[in-house]
Design a protein around this nucleic acid. Sequence first.
DNA 1: CTGGGGAGGGGGCCC
DNA 2: CGGGCCCCCTCCCCA
Length: 569
Amino acid sequence: MATCNSNVMIFHTQIASIMEVLANAAVAEICKLVDDDYAVFRLEITQSQKENRALRRKLQLIELKVTRERAERTTRERVLASRPSSVKIPDRYRGITRGEGHLTEGHRSFVKPAGHRTWRDDQPITIDEGSGTSTQRVIVIESADAEEAGPGGSSLVKQERTEGEEDPRHSIDIQIGAVGVAPPVATEDFASAPHPRAQCSITEVSGTPNAVLKSEKDTETLTVTQRFLHTGLNQMSDPERLELGPLGCPSAPGSDYLLYGNPSLRTVHSHGDSGDVLETGNDSSCSYTTEMDPGNMPLDLETQTDLSRGDWNRYSSSVYSEGCLDKKGEVIVIDERTVKGEAPLTWNVDETHLGVGHSQGRDFLDYRESLETNPNVASHSPLHTLRDLDTVSMLMGPSDSQSRDFFDPVLNSKDQRAKARGGGATSGNSKEKRFCNEGFNCPQKVEIHQRVHIGVKPFSCTQCHMHFAEAGNLKRHQRVHTGEKPFSCVQCHMHFARTGDLKRHQRVHTGEKPFSCTQCHMRFAQAGNLKMHLKVHTGERPFACPHCGKRFSERRCLRIHQQKKHSIL
DNA sequence: CTGGGGAGGGGGCCC
DNA sequence: CGGGCCCCCTCCCCA
């Protein structure tokens, strides 16, 4: 018995020792794991701290830059204030009609202020020369910071000509940076006025052999451009510009489609020697490339000089704050562009600027109001964002497969698109996604989609003032004028211009009411009617009479009220 | 006169 | 490029 007990004791002792060993081993293992994880964690923390420091440094640099540029702008504004007003540059936002004056269809080019890094580089640009097509890739290699290049710094422009021989006049990177050299000017008055900033880098990227490049000081150019300034908007229309060149966009069928070219994207340059004239900008063959390019935006000398130094914020600020929007004539289009296009890009930062709805009229007012009150509206230009996000991507041409990677594949899903489109009333903020990450597997689609963001509407109705971003929409619209209603209801023989209208109409016969109110379970055949109905529950009366203050739930009620009570038509 | 539902017109946008 | 959906606007009608 005693022996048995001693054996049990020994056994227990051994078990205890084994347990202790195992426990120690486990502890050691745990400690090792903790140490490893801790090391990894420390490493990650260190990396994060490094990134934070780098970002902080960048932020400081940016702040310094902004402060300095603001001071410069203030100084320049003072100088300008003391100058005669005749230096205003009228040839902004100016388009030309092909074949008019010195302008021939072969003379198309693109001008980009050097030092401005928002050019969509390395994109094939097709120049329709009548006799053929010349496609080039333009790669602008610039320093990370334009200022580092110094006052004489320039961009390296690499051209890859795919057709034709190298023209010595191509690959020009004109520097008018020498002190004392007259700056590019657009008016004779200005030509005689020395400009403190003489640097102007113009890159001629046209493949047109006849295309030449010159500084903008040539008064002959001014004559031409001024003439076009007065030619009116309609002369911007040119069906042949519907040829979308490298994007493969076909020409719009028929002459009913007028390209509503954005004059703001067009500039006319003439060569001092040959008198040849460049037409820059909004050739639809390059719209993919240039429409988002602030460098292609109309510039006065001040802003152009600024832009050549990469000062896009100042440029945008000046554009939006100096009353350019309200100018008649050429600037009407800019209204369209800025109001419906670029400016709202900013609002994806602060969507509170936007109303719920996105009807055309309200958008116009909302955006315009914000434009007028927010001089820095374009400081969040998508180009900046793009550039800041991925400079390398910006250098990718549209035909480059890598350019597709520019769009975040993570967001390239139906869910994300649905999110971007929103639902119900919130989708009215569709302009929030102006800088979205829609995924496209075709540059052409990218180009078309970008019109959504930019607000470019190249397709103009010949019978009214309407402009459209897509040819199909124009075609659809033209049924308004033709009265064509090819879709008829078999039950009541009503006719409709669109299948969707017919489909919606047929709910009258089927009694289908897919839209139900969650408050009272009323059902509606149209979503809009449900939305209107919801105001009954919310008591929403957003429409107030400015004369008596009475509020209405619907605009139509307000309008009727004003007509009858205040005799306002 | 006003509120509210029904329904068509038409633009924006994406597939 | 057509189809389709979403959305807003507007008119009509009726209570």
